[in-house]
Design a protein around this nucleic acid. Sequence first.
DNA 1: AGTTTATCACAACAGTTGTTATATTCATTG
DNA 2: CAATGAATATAACAACTGTTGTGATAAACT
Lengths: 184, 184
Amino acid sequence: MSEAAWRVIAREGLDRASMRAIAQEMDCTTGVVTHYFRNKQELILFALHQVTERLRGQMDVAITNLSGVDRLVAMLLSFLPLDQTRQEILQVWVAFLGYAVGRQDLMVEHRHSAGELRKVVIQELAALQKQQIIRSDIDPAIEANVLLALVNGISLDTLIQSQPLDSKQQKIALQRYVSGLLNH
Amino acid sequence: MSEAAWRVIAREGLDRASMRAIAQEMDCTTGVVTHYFRNKQELILFALHQVTERLRGQMDVAITNLSGVDRLVAMLLSFLPLDQTRQEILQVWVAFLGYAVGRQDLMVEHRHSAGELRKVVIQELAALQKQQIIRSDIDPAIEANVLLALVNGISLDTLIQSQPLDSKQQKIALQRYVSGLLNH
DNA sequence: AGTTTATCACAACAGTTGTTATATTCATTG
DNA sequence: CAATGAATATAACAACTGTTGTGATAAACT
């Protein structure tokens, strides 16, 4: 069920992910869809929460058994659309963001989602700073924004540029920026 | 006319920028709208071209009488949503991008638009490299993507973070990254 | 002057949308 | 077996969408 909704959104965008389109995707009638999602609003919010959960999942897997800078880099790399799974996540993420323009309630929800990930990055930066791995003149709260901005920007690059960075170049760009935060 | 369309899109998003909504904004009937935009497709593409034009305009003003690194930095800063005008541009830009998910033709158009700006940045980087102002191990074509990624990411930051970077922090982040590209 | 052209109003179209209500099937449990 | 409730189907609703056509008016031009 939720898989079908996810697929339609990733493939067609949010405005064309109608109740009927999702019903058709799972080869049933709209009765099923309305039974699980009372509103279209609920459906849309579900998509956003899926984005957050999946990103968190990707991240948790990526950073296990890592520490130090490697851990930070792995964390940030896990957000990049390096495989088809994460490209789908990006599609839904962008679709939601565009759909939230002019809908303040949805934008607030999106900010909550982004805030969760930001918190994790801040903690990681603070920890690395305590270990004196990254420079002491860095404000974790601010640097988290910049790091996420770079990650989001690189992700968007794959969508909006006709000659986007390939996966190797994406990694290098991120790695190089992070290395500029280190001590020495 | 085009002003009204622009306002509605920035305020309500693309899917709710219906012919009738735009007509109401300019206090007339749909006859006027259909007379100037044959399709909704044309209306949407108009919005995108407006984004490109306005960004170019902002940029051209920002870089006049500048040279060297200042010119590059000013160019990049001109893309940031530092005032209300550019915040509106960002809104429309994001709305279009989300609307283009699942609509390949629109995404292609968006890539053309992004490609134009990318070309300018590449040229600028190449020029600075020739003057030996920026490092020689930098590939202008790749670095343009990274720079634009950072700019776009910082722009999005103002939309999706509940504690976004303020304008001063945005400038510092960008300036600091650019200074990492310089010789010595 | 007369003729064409741009501008706008208005109405109607066919289709799609979210939502709701009602009916039916199905399974689980008492 | 009966019964309760979830799961699914079906149908209808009103509202909205993009689009098209038919005029009316005014402006421009020959």
